[in-house]
């Protein structure tokens, strides 16, 4: 027994020492994990997903086939297009780096002032660096009225 202990000491550590430091390391790691998870919850944004709300845009009769209209819906700028009876609501948030593309009625295109991305009336990229077409909001026509599901504003900015 004595000899065994001596061998252990020569190797730098007894079994008791080893178990002790293993236990300490494990509990330290466990508490660090708990602390890290609390810390993460604290710094991670409270609102990760913006909820959508359905808002009344206008009556279908005001948007005959082949026409379009820019509207502000719940703090979002939206282009409503009536394409042969099917209504589309196109977001003006540029898919490049998030500026607002402006609808230019004369050329019937969206132009983003930031890096000159250009989109057509369907939201497809015509020119410039944007990687994707403009986003679309879900549209529902109920009792002759157009409703659009838009993101609720996350807070005053």
């Amino acid at each position: 027994m004595d000899e065994a202990k001596q061998v252990g000491e020569e190797q730098g550590m007894t079994r008791r020492d080893f178990l002790m430091s293993a236990a300490m390391t494990t509990s330290l790691a466990a508490s660090a994990t708990v602390a890290a998870s609390f810390g993460w919850q604290f710094v991670y944004p409270a609102v990760a997903q913006i909820p959508t709300v359905q808002v009344l845009a206008l009556s279908l009769s005001k948007l005959p086939a082949g026409t379009s209209k820019v509207m502000k819906l719940g703090g979002n700028e939206v282009l409503l297009v009536n394409k042969n009876g099917a209504v589309h609501a196109i977001s003006t948030v540029c898919t490049h780096l998030g500026c607002r593309a402006a609808w230019e009625e004369s050329r019937r295109q969206f132009v983003c002032p930031c890096h000159v991305g250009v989109f057509d009336a369907d939201g497809k990229v015509v020119a410039g660096p944007p990687p994707r077409p403009l986003g679309e909001f879900a549209v529902e026509v109920k009792a002759g009225n157009i409703y659009v599901a838009v993101p609720q504003k996350e807070g005053a900015a």
Partner: peptide, 14 residues
């Protein structure tokens, strides 16, 4: 992105 902005878009928390 969300960590820097404190949300999906630039908000009060940014």
């Amino acid at each position: 992105l969300q960590m820097i902005r404190g949300g999906m878009v630039v908000t009060a928390d940014t």
